[in-house]
Design a protein around this nucleic acid. Structure first.
Lengths: 347, 347
DNA sequence: CATCCGGCCGTAAACGTTTACAGACCGCTC
DNA sequence: GAGCGGTCTGTAAACGTTTACGGCCGGATG
C-alpha cells in the first residue's frame, strides 16, 4: 500500500520548508509566490492532510460520540437524527455506541473518553447515573451531556450538562386523559424497575392515580421489558388476571404495540373496550392501528438540545453546568378516542 | 484542564525508560520486576493510553464508518443494528454518516477516507456508484464495502467488496403474488428514478408485468420520494387518475404506509378493494394496519454480510473482491390476504 | 552609511506512542 | 579468566502535523 503525500513531500516539490507548507494550507499570511508554489504542489500530488496527526498535535479529534441503549428504538433514532446535522454543521463526526443498556458497556464508553478518541459525549444511561459514572465523567475531563436524570449533588469538576424530560408529568397527562374519557380501571405495563424511566414511571403512575382519587391496585401493574414482545406478554398476563380493565397505560410505544397485538388477537375493541396509551410518541404511534395516543417526551427536541449544549462547551470552553428540561405533551390519536369522535388519522 | 499521565510520566515514576513502559503495557516479554514496577506506577497514576498517538504510530484508527442516506429509515437502522455488534466485537468503533442521499455528501465521505480517520467504510450510495465514486475509492486505498449495485468493470486497484440484493426478483415475487390473488390493475408507486433502487424497481415492474402477460400502462405509475408523505401524495394522484386500480406495489414500506393512510382516508378497503405491497419488510410493516405484505430484501442480512466482508479485509489484508447477493423473499401479511384467509397477524 | 523594523521563512521541538538497534549485564563453558 | 550467548533495557527515530523562535533580507529612517 503506497503511502500518500505528506507536507514533507509537498515541501520538497515546492522547494520550501514544511512550516511554510503548513502555513499556506492553514491560510496563515504568506508571500503570494510561496502560496502559489505550495498550492500547485499540493494539487499535483493530490494531498490530503492526515487527520490523526493533526488530532495528535491539536489535541482535538473533531469527533463526538452518542451512547444509548438501543439504536433499534425509534426514540434514539429520533435523537440521532437531530444530533447528526448539528454536529456535522460544526465540523464534527459522530460515533454511535449502542450499549444494549449494559451498565458495564456504558461505563466503558465513559472511561473510554480518557483515551481521547472523541472531544465530547452525549449519553443516555438507561440504568441511571451511578457513583461510578460520575467518577468516570470527572476523570474524563471532556464535556459530557447526559440525557436523562442526573443526581442533584454533582461534584464541582464534572463538565456535565443535562437534558431531561418530566415523565412524571407525562404519565399524569395520560392518566388525566384516560380519566376524562371515563376510564377507571387503568392498567399499567411498565419496563424494568431498575431503569430510570421504569422507576420514574412507576412512581408517577401511583401519584397520578392518587391525584385522580383512584385506588392503587397491584394487580393492575405488569413489569417487563421495553420491547414489543415483552409488552404483548405483559398485556396477556394482565388481561387474564383482570379481564375488566378498561385502559392500558404503557411505559413506551413498543410495549403499547405489543398490547395492541394482544387486544386484537383477543378480539377486544380499542378503544371501545380498552383504551391504550403509549409513551415517546415515536413514528410507530402514527403507523399503528388504531393510531396510538402517546405521551411525547420530545425526543427530537432533547437530541437537539443535547447537541447544542455539547457544541457550546466544545466551542466556548468551560462554564457552569446547565440543565434543559423538555416538557412532555400528549398526542391524542385513535387508541383513546372513539371512532366517531376521532380527530383524524395519521401523524 | 490538567493533562493526564503519559508513558513518560510512568517511566519516571517507575524509574525505567519509556520503551520498557510500552513493552510492559503491550505485554511484550519483560523482566518480572520491571513489569511490577510499571504496572504499579500505571495503576497509581490512572494511566490510559492516548488512542490518537497510538493511531498515528500504528497507522490504524480502529474505527469504521457506515454511510447511508437516512438514519431515519428503518432499513438502515436494521443494518446498523447488525453492523455494530460485529465491529464492536472486533474492537472497532462505528461512525455514522447520514448523507441525506446527497451525492456530494457521499463523495465527501469517500474522499474523507484519505484523511485516514477510519480504517474502512461501508457505504450504501443511493444514487449509484459513479466514476467519481470509483476514483475516490481507488484513491482511498482503504477497504470499502458497497451495499447496493456496483458497476461490472471496477478497476484493479479498488479494494471494494459488494453486498447486493436482487430487487428485480423482489418485485417479481410481489407481482406474482398479486396476480395469484386475482389482481390485474396493479399500480406502482416508485421512488426517484435517478436512485439505484428507483431505477431497478421501475425496470423490474415492467418486466414482471410482461412476464405475467399484463399490459404496461403509464397511468398506473407514480414517481415520488421514498417517504411516507410522498407515498400518500402519489397514492392520491394515482387513485384519482385510475379509480379502478386493484393493487398498489410500493417501492418501499414508507411509501406503502402513505398509501395505506390515503386508502383509509378514502374509505377503500384493504385488501378488499385494493391490495398493497411494500418493500424492505421493516418493522413498520408488522405494525401497520392492516399489517403490510412486504418484500424482504434482507436488510439485516446485508448489514451483517457487509460488516463481515469489511472485517475480513481489515484483518486478513488484500484479496480479490467479493460479492454477496442476498435473496429477496416475500412476507405475506394482511394487506394482501382477505381477512377470512389471513394467516395471522403480527410479525 | 549605519540602524532599525517588519515581513517571511526555516529549524526544531512538540503532541504520545511503538519499535529497530545496540549496549549492558548475566551466567556458562572451555 | 576470556569468550560467548542470551536476556533485558535504553536511546533514538518515526508516524504527520502545528507553531515558537530566531535569522535573513528588504526598505525606510536618521
Amino acid at each position: 500500500m503506497t503511502e500518500g503525500p505528506t507536507i514533507t513531500t509537498i515541501a520538497q516539490r515546492a522547494g520550501v520548508s514544511i512550516a511554510s507548507v503548513s502555513r499556506v494550507l492553514n491560510g496563515l499570511p504568506t508571500r503570494e509566490d510561496t502560496v502559489r508554489r505550495v498550492m500547485r504542489a499540493a494539487d499535483e500530488l493530490g494531498y490530503v492532510p492526515n487527520s490523526v496527526a493533526r488530532s495528535l498535535r491539536n489535541r482535538r479529534t473533531d469527533q463526538v460520540a452518542f451512547a444509548m441503549a438501543d439504536i433499534g428504538n425509534p426514540v434514539y433514532v429520533a435523537m440521532v437524527r437531530e444530533i447528526q446535522p448539528v454536529l456535522k454543521e460544526a465540523g464534527y463526526r459522530l460515533l454511535i455506541h449502542s450499549t444494549d443498556g449494559d451498565a458495564e458497556d456504558e461505563l466503558g464508553v465513559l472511561r473510554g473518553l480518557r483515551e481521547r478518541y472523541v472531544d465530547g459525549l452525549i449519553i443516555s444511561p438507561l440504568r441511571g447515573v451511578t457513583e461510578e459514572h460520575i467518577e468516570a465523567i470527572v476523570a474524563a475531563r471532556a464535556p459530557v451531556v447526559v440525557i436523562g436524570s442526573l443526581p442533584e449533588d454533582m461534584p464541582e469538576g464534572a463538565l456535565v450538562d443535562n437534558v431531561r424530560t418530566d415523565s412524571r408529568t407525562g404519565v399524569r397527562l395520560a392518566l388525566d386523559h384516560l380519566h376524562a374519557i371515563g376510564r377507571r380501571r387503568i392498567g399499567f405495563l411498565n419496563g424494568p424497575l431498575d431503569t430510570v424511566p421504569g422507576a420514574a414511571r412507576a412512581a408517577a403512575y401511583r401519584e397520578a392515580l392518587e391525584a385522580l382519587g383512584l385506588p392503587y391496585d397491584e394487580d393492575l401493574v405488569e413489569v417487563g421489558d421495553f420491547y414489543r414482545e415483552s409488552g404483548a406478554h405483559a398485556a396477556r398476563a394482565l388481561l387474564s388476571r383482570v379481564p375488566g380493565v378498561d385502559a392500558l397505560m404503557c411505559a413506551n410505544d413498543l410495549i403499547a404495540l405489543g398490547a395492541l397485538d394482544v387486544l386484537r388477537e383477543q378480539g377486544r375493541d380499542v378503544p371501545g373496550d380498552v383504551a391504550v396509551v403509549g409513551m415517546d410518541d415515536t413514528e410507530l404511534a402514527s403507523v399503528a392501528w388504531p393510531t396510538l395516543t402517546s405521551v411525547s417526551l420530545g425526543s427530537a427536541e432533547r437530541g437537539r438540545a443535547a447537541a447544542g449544549l455539547l457544541l457550546d462547551r466544545l466551542q466556548n470552553g468551560p462554564r457552569e453546568p446547565r440543565v434543559v428540561v423538555v416538557r412532555p405533551s400528549l398526542t391524542i390519536r385513535g387508541s383513546t378516542t372513539l371512532p366517531g369522535t376521532s380527530p383524524g388519522g395519521a401523524r
